[in-house]
């Protein structure tokens, strides 16, 4: 199973050129989309009452959570888990992807194992990690890392294999030591793929952390969503979910977007 680099496009919203025509269409489109989503939601909240909360109730619940300490405590806990797994999966996946991309034998060894790892359902990783490590922080961290790293590895590998071999020849001919050539020639070529992988790794980490916390943690955003669900407080389920998703979206755009601009300056 290879969720390939074509997914990078899925993380980027279309950015049309700024003409007034285009801007009007964008604003109109956004209004239409939000209005229609709102209409669907309202309809559902009426037809499937009380299982789908009304938008009004949900907004009230969002306000309540935004002013409660418990929400922030859970949020920071979850953010910490995301950050740890995101970093570990990105570093391990990138290192593995580079090794696989550079060497056919390493590829032959790891590729079937990665294919199998990608076919394992995420809850299985979580449950086995809990069995092996108990219900502490380590289990969630290991499960998330195992679930995310193979995706990162696949994205980085295909970029390594598509590298400019001409630059490899150039560095060999000019006798540039291979460790230096790695940092000045190969790594910069991988930057776009590494950024894509980072975006992907981040998105996957925060989406999976909900599953991890729901199954194996007493606290965190995922646990509080699932806890509310058990008590059938659907407005809290939806409110926390929306707040969490929006925050993660902001984080991705803010941090990763800025990083991307900095690292790809030379492309102007």
């Amino acid at each position: 199973m290879t969720l390939s680099t074509s997914m990078q496009a899925t993380t980027l919203s279309p950015r049309p050129k700024a003409g007034t025509m285009d801007r009007n269409i964008r604003i109109l489109g956004a209004i239409l989309a939000v209005a229609s989503l709102f209409a669907i939601w309202t309809t559902l909240s009426i037809t499937v009452r009380p299982w789908v909360p009304t938008p009004y109730d949900t907004v009230l619940a969002m306000g309540r959570h935004l002013t409660s300490q418990g929400f922030y405590a859970n949020l920071f806990l979850t953010l910490g888990r995301i950050a740890a797994a995101f970093l570990a999966a990105s570093v391990i996946g990138a290192a593995l992807g580079i090794a696989i991309g550079m060497n056919r034998k390493v590829e032959a060894f790891f590729q079937p194992l990665l294919a199998m790892a990608l076919a394992v359902p995420d809850p299985v990783f979580i449950i086995f990690a809990i069995l092996a490590l108990g219900t502490g922080e380590a289990a969630g961290f290991v499960a998330l890392t195992l679930a995310v790293a193979p995706f990162v590895s696949n994205i980085v590998r295909s970029s390594v294999q598509a590298r400019d071999k001409g630059l490899d020849e150039m560095t060999r001919i000019y006798r540039i030591p291979s460790d230096k050539a790695f940092w000045v020639s190969l790594v910069p070529q991988l930057v776009p793929a590494l950024l894509t992988a980072a975006r992907f790794s981040f998105a996957l980490s925060w989406k999976l952390v909900v599953v991890v916390e729901a199954i194996g943690q007493p606290d965190g955003i995922g646990a509080s969503i699932f806890h509310s669900f058990r008590l059938l407080r659907m407005r809290d389920v939806v409110a926390i979910a929306i707040l969490f998703i929006l925050l993660m979206q902001l984080l991705e755009k803010g941090v990763l977007g800025r990083l991307e601009k900095r690292l790809l300056r030379w492309r102007q």
Binding site: D164, G166, L167, E169, Y174, I176, K180, P188, W266
Partner: peptide, 21 residues
């Protein structure tokens, strides 16, 4: 093809090979 490293300026490209000379 030129095979310069596009993320290095002209000077940096030249210094790279000088460092190995």
């Amino acid at each position: 093809a030129h095979r310069l490293l596009p993320w290095r300026t002209v000077k940096q490209n030249l210094e790279l090979v000088l460092a190995a000379s």
